[in-house]
Design a protein around this nucleic acid. Structure first.
Lengths: 189, 189
DNA sequence: TTCATTTCTTGATATTTATCAAGAGGACGG
DNA sequence: CCGTCCTCTTGATAAATATCAAGAAATGAA
C-alpha cells in the first residue's frame, strides 16, 4: 500500500476496496522547490496529499509573509474555504523542497461521496479533528509565551526543525526570526 | 419562528418541515449566572444553542482561567472533541449571565441524521465554516499586535464589550486585563 | 441605602519581544 | 574553488506587554 492508502485506511477506516477506489482517483504530481500548488485569489480545486517533501501555506499581510502552517509527509494541503465553499483562496501553498503529492481534483473528489455512502460523515469527522487541532493552536497563543510555543513545537514536531528554514517556523510560531534564533540558543545552553 | 429555527433555516438551508423536525428535538434550558453547562473532564453529551445571555468557554492552565471563546445569541456551545469523539471535555462552559438555551442531547442529535439524509453533509459544511473562522483567529495571533487584535474584535463584535467583563475579553484576546484597559483608554483619547 | 466584594484602572517597574544593523555561515551556480 | 546570495546569528536598542501593587469604580446583597 502506498503512503496515501495507508493514511486513508488508518484515518477513515474504510474497507480495502474503498481505499483502493479512493486512492485510484488521486494522481501523482511533482512540485519543484519554489513551485506553487495554489495562489491567493485563485480557486482551490485540488486537494493534495503530501507523499514527500515540505510545503508551506502562507499569506501576505502588510508586505510580510505570514506562514500559517507547514505540511510534511502525511498531511493534506488545501485551502478549505475555497475547496468547500468555492471562495477565492486565502492561502498561498508553495513547495519548500521538491515535493511529491497525490492530487485529486474537486470533481473526482465529489465522486467519492457517490461511491461511499458514509463519506460525508467521514469528512465531517476529519474536519472536526482538524478543528480541535486548531483550537489547541489558538490556546498556545492565549496561554503560552513565545518560548513555550517554541518548546511545544519542538517537543511535538521536532523533525520540522531539521527540514524547514527557521524563518518560516518563526512566522508559524508568531515570532520574529531573531527571537526564534535566540530561543534556540538559550535552550541549547 | 424561534431564533433557533431562524438560525437552522438560514444556516443549513433545510425545508420548513425539516427545520421544525430538528428544532422540536431541542429543549429549552435555563442557566443561572455562574452555572456550568459543561465541566472539563466530563463528557459533552449536549449541544446548546444560545437564545439569550452570555456564556463562556474556558480552560484552567497553570491555575489561570484561559477564555477560549464567548458565545452570545445565535452561537452553539459544545465541546466538539467530546461531543463528536466521546473524549473527556477540554472546556468549561459557564454562564456569565442568566442564559436561555435550546439543548439537544447526543442521542436525539444522532436522530437528525436518520431523518435528514444529507445531514452529515450539512454538519460537515458547518464545521468547515467553524474551521475557517478559527484559521482567521490563528492569523490574528501571527500577524497582529495586542492593540490590533483589540481593535479587530471591537470592529467585528462590538456588542461583546457591552455585556462581557473585560477580564474575559482580555484573556480571549491573549493579553492581560491591564493591557486591555490601557488599550481601551488609548483608543478613546 | 450601605457595606462588602468584585472588577477595572492607573502607576511604577520588569520582562519579553521586536527592530535595526552588521557580520558569520552555508548553499549553490558558474 | 570562488563569489554571490540567502539565511542565520548576534548585539544594541526600542517598543510592547506583563507583573505587582494600590486605589477607584461598579456591582450585588442585605
Amino acid at each position: 500500500m502506498s503512503e496515501l492508502e495507508n493514511y486513508i485506511q488508518s484515518y477513515f477506516g474504510v474497507s480495502k476496496e474503498e481505499v483502493s477506489a479512493i486512492s485510484s482517483m488521486f494522481q501523482k504530481v511533482n512540485l519543484e522547490k519554489g513551485e506553487f500548488f495554489l495562489k491567493t485569489g485563485r480557486y482551490s480545486e485540488r486537494l493534495g496529499f503530501v507523499q514527500a517533501g515540505v510545503i508551506r501555506e502562507f499569506v501576505i499581510i502588510n508586505d510580510k509573509e505570514v506562514t500559517k502552517w507547514i505540511s510534511t509527509k502525511g498531511y493534506f494541503v488545501v485551502d478549505l474555504s475555497s475547496f468547500i465553499f468555492k471562495q477565492t483562496a486565502r492561502w498561498n501553498i508553495q513547495a519548500l523542497t521538491d515535493c511529491e503529492l497525490f492530487v485529486i481534483n474537486i470533481d473526482n473528489y465529489k465522486e467519492i461521496g457517490k461511491t461511499i455512502p458514509r463519506w460525508a460523515e467521514l469528512e465531517k469527522l476529519f474536519i472536526a479533528k482538524c478543528f480541535t487541532v486548531l483550537e489547541d493552536r489558538v490556546l498556545t497563543h492565549l496561554a503560552m509565551t513565545a518560548e513555550e510555543r517554541y518548546l511545544h513545537l519542538l517537543a511535538f514536531n521536532k523533525e520540522l526543525f531539521q527540514f524547514v528554514p527557521l524563518q518560516y517556523l518563526a512566522s508559524m510560531l508568531g515570532m520574529t526570526p531573531e527571537t526564534l534564533s535566540r530561543l534556540r540558543k538559550k535552550s541549547v545552553q
